[in-house]
Amino acid sequence: MPTPGPPLLELAGVSVSFDGFLALKNLNLQLASGELRAVIGPNGAGKTTFLDVITGKVRPQAGDVRFRGRSLLGRNEHQIARLGVGRKFQSPRVFEQLSVQENLALAVSETKTPMGLLRRPLTNTQRQRIHHLLEVINLAPRARHRAGSLSHGQKQWLEIGMLVVQAPQLLLVDEPVAGLSDAETERTADLLRSLAGDHTVLVIEHDMEFIRRLQTRVTVLHQGQVLCEGSMDRVQTDPRVVEVYLGAGQEQP
């Protein structure tokens, strides 16, 4: 595990409500630079909203989100992304009409303005990164195929690949192994682990085996709040977590 430095990402007292329904309630969370963190929680715990708040899609009613000491509130999605926050979406969202290579080229591009894209071609280093990534995510033979023709698992990998070539400091990964085979799941876990250290990675996942394999600190969300935090073993034995996941509370008055 990396040594805990100053927090790279900090959520302080974040609350989000949709027409009175509190999706996040006074949420506090800190992420150290270089950390790999897993976030779990039952359905409706606010996991996706939590990512939406960080990436600027949802504005919280209260609280603050700080990234590298700067507040992210009031910034647009693209501004936050340019600061170094990358996101992989829950169901894979790749550009299906573009080829695998073109998808990665959009992600790797450093200029993100219209004129920049027209004037500056990709540099050699960027091309090499794309080729390297294509090998890593096992899609080199399909580089020229339309992303829409890929299988579900391949799309997941392509999106992870896009996230990596985008080279953000903070990677937000939403359910990376949903729909993947066991072998693919293992490879994904290894990939994410290898990224930690250079990058900070936050993974949201349902798959407990996968989380265990990450061998890292786990945060449990429940009803928009942090329920507990710690290693997988500790979290799994925590009575509150057991209660939330198994619904034991209803049977014990």
């Binding site: 990436t55 899609k57 647009n76 999605e77 693209h78 992304a81 340019r82 990358g86 996101r87 979406f89 969202r93 790749v94 550009f95 299906e96 009409q97 573009l98 073109e102 080229a105 959009l106 992600a107 993100k112 219209p114 894209l117 896009m162 985008q166």
Partner: peptide, 18 residues
């Protein structure tokens, strides 16, 4: 390609920093 990306999934493109 960026135009096609806007057409097909604008929110995704934003998260790439565009």
């Amino acid at each position: 390609h960026a135009l096609l990306a806007i057409r097909d999934d604008e929110a995704r493109l934003r998260c790439l920093g565009y």
